[in-house]
Amino acid sequence: MKKSALINADLSHLIATLGHTDEVTICDAGLPIPGDTQRIDLALIPGVPSFMDTIRAVLSEMQIEGVVMAEEFAEVSPTHHQALLTLIDEEARKTDKNIAVTYIPHEAFKAQTHRSKAVIRTGECTPYANVIFQSGVVF
Rank of each mutant, 00 (worst) to 15 (best):
D28M: 02
A70I: 01
S12C: 08
G47I: 05
H81L: 09
V58S: 01
G123M: 02
E23F: 03
T54Y: 01
A43H: 02
I45T: 14
Q112T: 13
R121S: 09
E124G: 14
I55E: 04
I88Y: 00
I64V: 13
Q38I: 15
E23I: 15
A74S: 12
I104S: 02
F133L: 13
H13K: 12
L44Y: 05
I64Q: 09
K117C: 05
E107G: 01
I45V: 15
A29V: 07
T95R: 15
A29D: 12
Q63G: 02
P105C: 10
V68R: 06
H106T: 14
S77G: 06
S116K: 03
G19T: 13
I26H: 00
V24N: 08
T122A: 07
L87N: 04
V131S: 03
L42A: 04
T95V: 08
P49N: 08
P49A: 04
P34S: 07
S60W: 09
E65R: 13
R115W: 02
S4G: 13
D10L: 08
G47E: 10
T37N: 07
K3R: 11
Q38S: 14
F109M: 10
E75I: 11
C27K: 11
F51L: 08
A43V: 11
Y103V: 03
A111H: 07
S50M: 08
L44E: 09
C125T: 13
K2A: 14
L85Y: 05
C27G: 09
E107M: 03
M69D: 05
G66S: 11
S12D: 07
T54A: 00
L42Q: 01
D96P: 04
I120L: 01
T79R: 09
Q38T: 13
K117M: 11
K3E: 12
R93A: 07
G66H: 03
G19C: 08
D28E: 14
E65F: 07
S50R: 11
Q82Y: 05
A16K: 09
P105H: 12
Q134N: 09
L6D: 06
L6S: 07
G19W: 01
D22Y: 09
G136H: 01
N130Y: 02
A5I: 15
P105R: 11
D36C: 03
N8E: 13
I33F: 00
Q134F: 03
D22A: 05
I45S: 14
I45L: 12
G19A: 06
I64Y: 02
L14D: 03
A16P: 06
G47T: 07
L18F: 09
P32S: 04
H114L: 03
E65S: 05
E91R: 10
N130L: 04
V24S: 01
P105S: 08
F139H: 12
K3G: 06
P127W: 02
H114T: 10
E107C: 00
P34R: 06
G66K: 09
A83D: 15
V119D: 00
K2H: 15
I40T: 02
I45G: 12
K3I: 13
R39F: 04
E124P: 02
A16R: 05
T122Q: 04
N8Y: 06
K2S: 12
T126L: 09
F133M: 07
H80L: 14
A118D: 05
I33D: 00
R93S: 01
L42Y: 01
